[in-house]
Design a protein around this nucleic acid. Structure first.
Length: 946
RNA sequence: GCCCAGAUGGCGGAAUCGGUAGACGCGUUGGUCUCAAACACCAAUAUCGAAAGAUGUGCCGGUUCGAUCCCGGCUCUGGGUACCA
């Protein structure tokens, strides 16, 4: 009987569904293991062979863990909200829900063919109301929370309100948008609106003013890449920087915890490093500067407190509120012009052309260390959003300050011994401090840094600043709060209505607030977001229900928020929902949370390093603070699978003709390379007839062949439709079977590495499975297996494999596992092994990789039940023990010939035997032996000298 | 610019602790089977060389009896990030 994957695979896939083989429940008798893939966005293009790579890798791990006796949760779902479906809706009028469901069904069909062990009974979709009820719920929890810096956790907003009522806010150490000061009396005297506004300064989900790219003509906010040269990509309308009220999440409050948490999880160093940079912790000093001839003062932030004596000017961000205060009457016109100029520049423009710009404000600041008056400048190179939006400029030791000083001809004072600052600044934090204070001026204060190293000088300055009340030591984070609203249709609606300008939460019992129907998916004519098109979108407070907009009276019926949530809202806590997906009383039950805890293994692309993987950790930490999640970190171990690239093929058309020339001859002509569908090319040889049929314009194409063949060129590129290099997994499954696809995807190379797909190589894996099948099944359709004990060689071969595969799977080194299978099968075939013991073990070993063939053979071996519940074969070291050790004799490190010794031979005897071996004489001729190094079992190294 | 990762045959990639570099697969070449092709099987396949042998893991240098592996410097490729003071 042949290996008939076309019968075997659908048969077992059906059996798994019928027997609910992969459904799991909390089970206290077994240890749990939670394997998770980043859930896909179901795009209209369907899956290509690159998509399942991570799913296969995690499926192998999940199956392996199950065979080892773990209760494995391996769920799958869809990140179903997103822009492409909405864009498609705008173009075609087709409701996003319709296309999304179509795409999901297509994905499911494709996934099912590959034989995953997903528990589909736990499927979630971010766009289903049963799911986004809990996204809305979490948002409300964040709205009703603030972050206490002292306890480093979220607390209910009522705690803060109580504090305000009794003590006001002095001395409060909480995360906030900007510093405010008020007393209890002031608080108590404020009306509802004012209180609401003040609380926004503290809530974890809050309405905040943020800078956005605003296009007045389109009436919408544009993302950075939708703006080109200051005008909108679509329409070419002017775009300006505008402060807009948006929902935000106070992710920045969790900066330190997000940073510290990285030490406790097993992620790759590179992704941890990316997150550390993104969080951007920097320890520095805030120093107060008095404005000359004024009572005003301002604060700057610096990490280089050692350079206080090298300050030659100050710079404010153009958006800083201080700008108006420091601008003098004479400079006002110039400053206003500059501010106007900066406003017209987008972030993108600033990035591309980095010219030095700025304007003098007319005022001076007094340097508390030198007493000198430093001019205050305004320049866009200082960012309002970081630190205090004001800096002290030390041109000698900061390249940006240096460029500015050179451009505006400002003084430069070097502060490091031997530093040459005539051509560029000296930015390194190494060297001995000098000129601090300068020897040619009378010291202003009794404080010197001269002679100290830079590190010592920073510490000494910090100490001085603290003791003399000139400022404070401060830690800054680069991490920004996340903007949480979008002016789009296809996303979660906010459970918020506006009562006389005050945002109010729709009661928790009324959730979910379902996305309303609209006729058009574009912004309204008055410039409102698409939800403005909904006619039933108002909140009747008394009757607690959604009603027609026409009923809005702002007394009992109020408008509902028109923004929707961004993509990361639904994907931030989905792993918790998988633990208890059908619970309509809570996000998840405490029982489920306590049993499944957190994700043990998370598999997905590294492109989410600074998006999803930060938001998710933030979201989980927030839920952890309230006890909904039982672990501070959501994903214990993370594997980033690489991309599968496409391997494109080219044909070469001779210019202005319809003649195509083969690769080897193309240099004789003036040709244009043209992408050709990889599915009509085999082994880089073009199927000429298929090419003619491919497109009408090639019907009468002519070819210049080499050796009777048309050879195509090739290149590795991204797998995409436009390059005609997309390979569909369905086609591979049809031709070779799911088991072959799974095996080959893993065999291509390390999971974490990007590598090109080449369908030609798949034959090797398919051949292996055919041989594997033939090893078990004889001519008469019966499994050939004898109960006689396995020979020593068979056991050695088998246990080498057990050891290798067990170790490899733990380390996600699947490609070498596959190679080990091939070697082992080869050996066993040569031995004509018929041992049942060996075959039983082999079936279980291959089950994680190729579950269908394993299941079939398991049954042919006489088992009922599923191979998924078989025990993983135990490794026995005894079988690998050798009688002899094979060693290489090397001369000066170069290996020459092998020798064998019984295990346990002592080093002296080995040395003697090696030197007396007749082959050695040849190499030792003309040399004397300096010493001999014996590495038992490996190497006998004879060190020779003349 | 800064941070991270990587560079090994014609190709994808092995070498898990510093010990015979190139496992395994593809491709290529030769052979067996076949009227023939396909399939299958066997053999060879880093480079130079008839061979003995020599040279080889991006480049230069170092440590070591011995380096793909450790150290210093450089080049290139991929990814992230960007006036973050």
């Amino acid at each position: 009987m042949e290996y008939n994957f076309r019968d075997i695979e659908p048969k077992w896939q059906k059996a798994w569904v019928e027997n609910k083989t992969y459904q799991v429940a909390e089970n206290g008798d077994k240890p749990k293991y939670y394997v998770l893939n980043m859930f896909p966005y179901p795009s209209g293009a369907g899956l290509h062979v690159g998509h399942p790579l991570g799913y296969i890798a995690s499926d192998i791990y999940a199956r392996f863990k199950r065979l080892q006796g773990f209760n494995v949760l391996n769920p799958m779902g869809y990140d179903a909200y997103g822009l492409p479906a909405e864009q498609y809706a705008i173009q075609t009028g087709q409701h996003p829900e319709v296309t999304t469901v179509q795409n999901i069904n297509r994905y499911r069909e494709q996934l099912d063919k590959i034989g995953f062990s997903f528990d589909w009974s736990r499927e979630v979709r971010t766009c289903s109301p049963e799911y986004y009820k809990w996204t809305q719920w979490a948002f409300q929890k964040m709205f009703n929370s603030f972050f206490c810096n002292k306890e480093q956790k979220a607390l209910p907003i009522e705690v803060l309100i109580k504090h305000f009522e009794t003590e006001g806010n002095p001395g409060l150490d909480v995360a906030q948008s900007e510093p405010l000061t008020f007393t209890a009396d002031e608080w108590n005297s404020w009306d509802e609106k004012k209180k609401s506004d003040v609380l926004m300064n503290y809530r974890i989900a809050f309405l905040g003013e943020t800078m956005v790219n605003w296009c007045p003509k389109l009436g919408t906010v544009l993302a950075n890449d939708e703006v080109i040269d200051g005008v909108s990509e679509r329409g070419g309308y002017p775009v300006e920087q505008k402060k807009m009220r948006q929902w935000c999440l106070r992710v920045s409050a969790y900066s330190q915890r997000l940073l510290d948490g990285l030490d406790s999880i097993q992620w790759s160093d590179s992704i941890k490093e990316t997150q550390r940079n993104w969080i951007g912790r920097s320890e520095g000093t805030e120093v107060e500067f008095q404005i000359a001839d004024s009572d005003e003062h301002f604060t700057i932030f610096t990490t280089r407190a050692d350079t206080m004596f090298g300050v030659t000017f100050m710079v404010l961000a153009p958006e800083s509120e201080l700008v108006q205060k420091v601008t003098t009457a004479e400079q006002k016109k110039e400053v206003d012009e500059y501010i106007k100029y900066v406003k017209g520049r987008t972030e993108r423009e600033r990035m591309i052309d980095r010219k030095v710009t700025g304007v003098f404000s007319g005022s001076y600041a007094i340097n508390p260390f030198t007493g000198e008056k430093n001019p205050i400048w305004i320049s866009e190179y200082v960012l309002a959003g970081y630190g205090t939006g004001a800096i002290m400029a030390v041109p000698a030791h900061d390249s940006r300050d240096y460029a500015f000083a050179k451009h505006f001809n400002l003084p430069i004072i070097p502060l490091v011994e031997g530093a040459d600052v005539s051509e560029e600044s000296y930015d390194a934090k190494e060297g001995i401090v000098t000129n601090s204070p300068r020897k040619d001026v009378k010291p202003y204060i009794d404080f010197s840094l001269n002679g100290l190293t830079i590190k010592e000088a920073i510490a000494a300055t910090k100490k001085y600043v603290k003791e003399h009340n000139l400022g404070r030591v401060k830690v800054n984070y680069r991490l920004r709060d996340a903007i949480f609203s979008r002016q789009r249709y296809w996303g979660e609606p906010f459970p918020v209505y506006y009562k006389n300008g005050i945002p109010c939460m729709i009661p928790e019992e009324c959730l979910p607030i379902k996305l309303p129907q609209v006729e058009k998916f574009l912004p309204t004519e008055t410039g409102e977001p698409p939800l403005g098109n909904a006619t039933v979108w108002a909140w009747d407070e008394a009757n607690r229900k959604i009603v027609e907009n026409s009923k809005i009276d702002n007394k009992t019926v109020f408008p509902i928020e028109l923004f929707t949530m961004p993509g990361f809202a639904g994907s931030s806590a989905y792993y918790l929902r998988y633990m208890d997906p059908h619970n309509d009383k809570a996000l998840l039950s405490p029982e489920a949370a306590n049993y499944w805890q957190n994700v043990d293994l998370y598999v997905g692309g590294s492109e989410h390093a600074t998006g999803h993987l930060i938001y998710s950790r933030f979201w989980n930490k927030f839920l952890y603070d309230y006890g909904f999640s039982v672990k501070d970190e959501p994903f214990q171990k993370l594997i980033n699978q690489g991309m599968i690239q496409g391997r494109s093929n080219f044909v070469y058309r001779i210019k202005d003709t319809n003649t195509f020339v083969s690769l080897g001859l193309k240099d004789n002509y003036d040709t244009t390379p043209i992408h050709v569908d990889v599915n009509i090319v085999s082994g880089d040889v073009l199927d000429v007839e298929a090419f003619k049929a491919w497109r009408p314009e090639y019907n009468n194409a002519e070819f210049i062949l080499e050796d009777g063949k048309y050879v195509c060129g090739w290149a590795v590129e991204k797998m995409s439709k436009s390059m005609f290099n997309v390979v569909n997994p369905d086609m591979i499954v049809e031709r070779f079977g799911a088991d072959t696809l799974r095996l080959y995807e893993m065999f291509l190379g390390p999971v974490e590495q990007s590598k090109p797909w080449d369908t030609n190589g798949i034959d090797g894996c398919h051949r292996f499975l055919k041989k594997f099948w033939n090893f078990f099944v004889g001519q008469d359709d019966k499994v050939v297996a004898t109960d006689a004990p396995a020979s020593k060689e068979e056991l050695k071969s088998l246990h080498t494999l057990i050891k290798k595969v067990t170790g490899d799977i733990e380390q996600f080194s699947y490609n070498t596992s596959v190679a080990a299978f091939m070697v082992c099968l080869n050996e066993l075939t040569k031995m004509k092994s018929t041992s049942r013991e060996v075959k039983e073990a082999l079936v279980v070993l291959i089950a994680p990789f190729c579950p269908h063939i394993a299941e079939e053979l398991y049954h042919l071996l006489g088992h009922s039940g599923t191979v998924c519940d078989a025990p993983w074969p135990a490794f026995n070291e005894e079988h690998l023990k050798e009688d002899n050790m094979k060693m290489m004799v090397a001369f000066n490190g170069k290996a020459r010939f092998p020798m064998e010794f019984p295990v346990g031979t002592d080093n002296a005897a080995i040395e003697k035997a090696a030197l007396e071996n007749p082959q050695s004489a040849k190499w030792m001729e003309g040399f004397t032996v300096a010493k001999v190094i014996v590495v038992p079992g490996k190497m006998i190294n004879v060190v020779l000298k003349k």
